[in-house]
Design a protein around this nucleic acid. Structure first.
Lengths: 265, 265
DNA sequence: GCAGCCTAATATGTGCACATTTACTATCAA
DNA sequence: TTGATAGTAAATGTGCACATATTAGGCTGC
């Protein structure tokens, strides 16, 4: 073994690759947003988050920077990091972009249906139908969201997948902030079935039109904005989500007021 | 003035908002890539870059992370950061995505031409024509690249602008790596003029077709890959680009072998 | 002579301490 | 009472030191 490094009990043994820890922090915050736990405009303070998650501030900092760069959060230099407040105009822009992109994807898939993995598509639609029959809302919600992703993946074009990921990311932010409670399963998954059917039959025009209508319906649904948030504190939000490392909560500050819903922009 | 902070001569006075310094580092590396100065597969080592740019390693680190996240660079944990090696397949995917996106943009602009800033479009095309007549290759290159961006901006949709930015970013990487030397001005800017004309006349079908053909032409041009790099060292590349802060080059390492063209993936 | 391992050197990753900036509060004067 | 202002506390930002990982080179044994 190396000679000049035999003392590693200073900060704790520590795992080898902490990359999974970073992922855990990233996912915890993202998941909290998707669940609608974090109200729009909330100031995500690094020390508070670090304490809530039980990790060091630098880790939180890295995750926040990443999320900000992916446009999940708004970061203002020397001010802080905030949960964005999606606007109706942004919603419109997102869905306009989705129409262009996803109609294009649908057209491509229908045109070159001989080259795609029809089995995956068929199975996914079957899974959605099954979820409907068993009235499994949670699973159906998940599958519905993944359907659009699946189409992008089936196109075999990484660029399209990446672009749609960003769009769906922002899209789900609107979803979690403004359309939770009784979500009527994505305007009906039978629409997904119809789209898949048109694609598999190679009916390009119909696939394109169905996708267009489907997205228009989603946009209309999300345009109704009513929202009440029951946010209390970051500690409560991440109480059972805390990253499970031994005991790594240095943290300097000793007080935390997890409220400050500062303005942004 | 605050009482407990009167000693600031430890590390140098230091500017107030160093955010411009970060930008300078970021732009220096990005520009070097666009200029084709950095060969594909090159390992960008943090200490070497820090010394070449005359800044601290942390700053370089931050810039590298940002560039990696924007897919300008490939970053492998515990291994290093590398200049990516664009493949033909990626080129195809990029242009397929561009076709979907930009044809969609062109269609929208032509359809709603009454709402767009026709003046900006007209002036841009005029500027391109002027650059052609005066044979100003540099300016024409710049304008040609901006034309596609301009169309996205005229759409008034931030989402579309962002997506196209990512695509053009990656696209320009192919350009700088595989089509430099005698670039025949983007397959002729008269194509841009024709597209603008169709848009302004509201001829949706023609605008879409012209854009499609234009992009197909670009893709074909970039498919011919011949590349010789005259790379020497990172010091040479950034010799006159060094960030101009007073004298902030701490840096621990004392030797630098700016060669290592390590493999990736 | 070559394969495998061990060792040294260098690069990346991270916690910590401190600098800087911002926000909040209390005080005083008009 | 209200306004501005100074002061305090806590946030963000950053350089530094050290821990960890990787790689290249040399050595030994088969």
């Amino acid at each position: 073994m190396p000679p000049s490094k035999t003392k590693r009990a200073v900060t704790e043994p520590r795992k080898k690759g902490d990359v999974d820890t970073d992922e855990a922090i990233y996912n915890a915050i993202r998941q909290a947003m998707l669940m609608g736990k974090l109200p729009a405009g909330l100031n995500l303070q690094e020390p508070t988050l670090a304490r809530a998650l039980g990790v060091s501030r630098e880790r939180v900092r890295k995750a926040l920077h990443r999320l900000a760069h992916e446009r999940w959060l708004d970061m203002i230099p020397n001010r802080g990091t905030f949960v964005p407040t999606p606007t109706i105009e942004e919603l419109h822009n997102i869905y306009e972009a989705r129409k262009i992109l996803e109609v294009g994807i649908a057209r491509k898939l229908a045109t070159r249906r001989a080259f795609i993995d029809t089995e995956r598509l068929t199975q996914h639609v079957a899974a959605e139908k099954k979820a409907i029959k068993s009235d499994d809302r949670g699973r159906l919600f998940k599958l519905s969201a993944e359907f659009h992703f699946l189409l992008a993946e089936l196109s075999g074009n990484d660029q399209l997948v990446d672009m749609l990921r960003g769009l769906l990311t922002r899209s789900s932010l609107h979803f979690s902030l403004f359309a939770p409670k009784r979500l009527h399963n994505c305007a009906g998954p039978h629409e997904h079935e119809d789209i898949a059917d048109a694609v598999l039959k190679g009916d390009t025009g119909r696939a394109a039109k169905l996708m267009l209508d489907h997205l228009a319906g989603l946009e209309t649904m999300l345009s109704v904005r009513n929202r009440v948030d029951n946010f209390t504190s970051l500690e409560d939000v991440f109480r059972c989500t805390a990253v499970d490392r031994g005991k790594t909560a240095p943290l300097t500050g000793r007080k935390q007021g997890g409220k400050s819903v500062g303005q942004k922009t």
